[in-house]
Computed example of a mutant assay.
Amino acid sequence: MLRTVLWFTYFWLYKLYSLLLLKKVNRLINSGQHQQAEKEIAAIARSWARSIIKYTGTKVEVAGLENIPEGTVLFVSNHQSNFDIPLLIGYIDKPKGFIAKAELKKVPIIRTWMEKIHCVFIERDNMRQSVKAILEGIELLKQGKSMVLFPEGTRSKSNVMNEFKAGGMKLALKAKVPIVPVTIKGSYQMLEQKRLIKPAKVKLVVSPPIYVDKLSKEEQAKLSETVRDIIAKELN
C-alpha cells in the first residue's frame, strides 16, 4: 500500500512539474526551433517514463535493441498493462508516438504530452473515426515519425495474448515502413486488481524487423498472423 501511495504522489507531482517543462517546449516551438523542441520532448518523455517505472520497484531487462533499424518504423507489441506505454518510451530509445485509446484524450496534461510525441487517438467502436485515425497514423509515418501499435486493441492483463486486429497493419503497408515486433513479458504483474502497485520483473524483447515492401501479396495478407506468431514465440 505504501508503495502505491508514494507512486501516485510522485505521478501527480511530476504531472504538475511537467507544466514548467511544457512552457520550455512551447517557447522552442514558437521561436521556430522545431528540431530542438522534438529532441527536448523525446528526452522529457524518456526521463518521465523511466522514473515512474523506477518508483514501482520493477526491474526491466531489454533484449534485441540492435534489431531496430535506422529511420522510421512501426513497433507492433502485445499489450499487458497500463505500464506498457512508459516501458516502451523509457527503454526503447527511439522517439515514437502511439495509436492510443481515445479515453486517454480526456486526461489533462497527459493528453497534451501525448499530442507532443505525435500520438493518434482511436475510438475502436467508431468505424469512421478508426479509419480516420489509421490514415492520420499513416501520414505521421510518412513524415518520419515512428509509431507503436497494440493490435490486441486492449490490455490482456495476463501472459496470454488476445487476437490481433489485422487492420492496424495497414499503417506499415501503406507507409512502406518496417515493422519491428516487440514482446512485453510480465508488465501485467506490476498492477494488482485492487490497483495496488508492486515490483515485478519485466522483459522487453525486440525482434528483427519485417520489411513489408519485400513481402509478396500472400505474405502481406498474413502479416498480422506472422507478427503475432513472432511475439507469441517470445512470450512463451
Rank of each mutant, 00 (worst) to 15 (best):
L215C: 04
A200D: 02
P86R: 05
P108V: 01
A133F: 05
E123R: 12
R111H: 11
V177N: 05
L223P: 00
K105H: 07
E66A: 13
I53S: 04
L6M: 09
T56A: 02
K116E: 06
A43D: 10
G186F: 01
E40Y: 14
V62R: 14
P209F: 04
E38M: 03
E136Q: 15
N162P: 09
N67E: 14
V25L: 08
Y17I: 09
L104A: 04
G90A: 07
A49I: 04
R3G: 00
P209T: 02
L16H: 08
L28G: 06
L20I: 14
F150D: 00
R50E: 00
I89F: 02
K194T: 08
L141Q: 03
T154D: 09
E70G: 10
S130G: 12
N126S: 07
I53L: 08
L215P: 02
I197N: 00
T58I: 03
T4G: 04
E123A: 11
E66N: 12
Q189G: 03
Q189I: 01
S31G: 02
L196P: 00
F164L: 10
I92G: 04
L140E: 03
R228A: 09
L135A: 13
S130F: 03
E103N: 14
I53E: 00
N30R: 14
V202Q: 02
I117T: 08
A232Q: 15
I184E: 01
N82L: 12
T183F: 06
C119D: 02
E61I: 13
K217D: 15
L204C: 12
N162F: 13
G186Q: 02
T112Y: 06
R46M: 06
F75S: 11
K165C: 02
K201N: 12
G57R: 03
L135E: 15
S156L: 06
Q36N: 13
T4N: 02
K198L: 10
I231N: 07
R128Q: 13
L20P: 02
L173N: 05
V177W: 02
G153F: 08
N78P: 10
L196F: 10
M169A: 03
S207W: 04
K174H: 12
T9I: 13
K233P: 01
K15M: 14
S146I: 04
E115V: 13
K54T: 11
G144S: 10
D84W: 06
N162D: 14
L2I: 09
Y91E: 08
D93R: 15
H118V: 05
V5P: 00
L104D: 05
S77Q: 05
H118Y: 12
F164D: 02
V148F: 03
K105Y: 05
G57S: 07
L171E: 00
D84G: 08
K201Y: 09
I231Y: 07
G167R: 06
K116A: 05
E40P: 01
K170L: 07
V131Y: 11
A172M: 04
K96Y: 07
F164S: 07
N78G: 09
L87S: 06
R128G: 06
L191A: 04
L16R: 08
K157R: 15
W48D: 00
Q143K: 15
I138C: 07
G57M: 05
A133D: 04
G97A: 11
L13T: 13
G153D: 12
V76K: 04
M1C: 08
A37I: 06
N67C: 13
Q129L: 07
E225L: 15
E123Y: 06
L88P: 03
A133P: 06
R228V: 07
V160K: 11
P95W: 09
S77T: 12
G168R: 00
I53N: 01
